[in-house]
């Protein structure tokens, strides 16, 4: 489904601020799988998602999606295949426009935008029907600007928008991180349901190891721009939050193991 071959991205190359955000990352995502990406802050998770979504072009490497080489596609073109929900609940919708107008744009994601009236009564009925399933009472507020809603409500709608047309790949970047715990739980639940019902292929960055364990069927751990661990299939079924913490620990320990430690162990380790 999604194949990433050795992509690299360096910000501010050849300066003191050089950040090697991705270092030859390769990853293959199977159709219908739900993969969680975890990792310390700044480990390159968002950068990886951005590279897939086309927010910028990686310095090197290849990405194919559904058999098509998309590395040279601009972001807006990839949107026909990729649905996205961002960490910032305000990033996925146009605040001054109504709920209906926002959704109607998502109903033609990656398609032509004809010169026909967008929000008609019949379209509104269709929208209301699906918005009702969110059980947030938003179906009665379709004509309100979406900016008047809470972060949780907006994120739920953004999720609905991203999946209205079934995307080949759904990208979720810490989409519950900025929400209060209750909304986060609700959006989390919603994510699970939509992905299951629509049999979506999804890639989710999350800061919550519990969420990774509960929702996904594969967990990829990143550190310093590299994938350091990949729990899948049987391994994923067995893995618990504490195991992930240990893996984090181990990765960090490895980091602390520098030449001075090597010298220390040479003297004392027998």
């Amino acid at each position: 489904m999604l194949k990433i071959y050795a992509i690299s991205k360096t910000f501010f190359p050849n300066t003191v601020n050089e950040v090697r955000a991705l270092q030859k990352v390769s990853l293959t995502i199977e159709e219908g799988s739900f993969t969680a990406i975890i990792g310390t802050n700044g480990s390159g998770k968002s950068t990886l998602l951005n590279a897939i979504a086309g927010t910028f072009f990686p310095d090197e490497g290849k990405i194919t999606l559904d058999g098509t080489e998309i590395i040279n596609w601009p972001e807006y073109k990839r949107a026909s295949l990729v649905g996205r929900v961002f960490q910032n609940p305000f990033a996925g919708s146009a605040a001054e426009m109504t709920i209906a107008e926002n959704i109607v744009m998502a109903m033609r994601r990656g398609q032509s935008r004809p010169l026909r009236q967008a929000v008609t009564l019949s379209v509104k009925e269709v929208i209301a029907e699906r918005v009702r399933l969110l059980k947030m009472g938003l179906e009665d507020r379709l004509d309100n600007p979406i900016g008047t809603l809470s972060g949780g409500q907006r994120q739920a709608l953004t999720l609905l928008m991203a999946t209205w047309l079934k995307p080949k790949l759904l990208l979720l970047d810490e989409h519950t991180a900025a929400l209060d715990p209750k909304s986060a739980a609700k959006v989390s639940e919603l994510t699970k349901n939509i992905i299951q019902q629509e049999k979506l292929t999804a890639l989710m960055v999350t800061h919550s190891m519990q969420q990774a364990v509960d929702l996904s069927d594969r967990i990829v751990m990143m550190h310093r721009g590299q994938i350091v661990e990949d729990y899948r299939d049987e391994m994923k079924k067995r893995v618990r939050v504490i195991d992930l913490m240990e893996t984090f620990d181990r990765v960090q320990k490895r980091e602390l193991f520098d030449e001075s430690v090597a010298a220390l162990l040479e003297k004392q380790y027998v």
Partner: peptide
């Protein structure tokens, strides 16, 4: 050596 020994850190 980091492939052989783990140090507590």
């Amino acid at each position: 050596i980091r492939e052989w020994l783990s140090f507590c850190g």
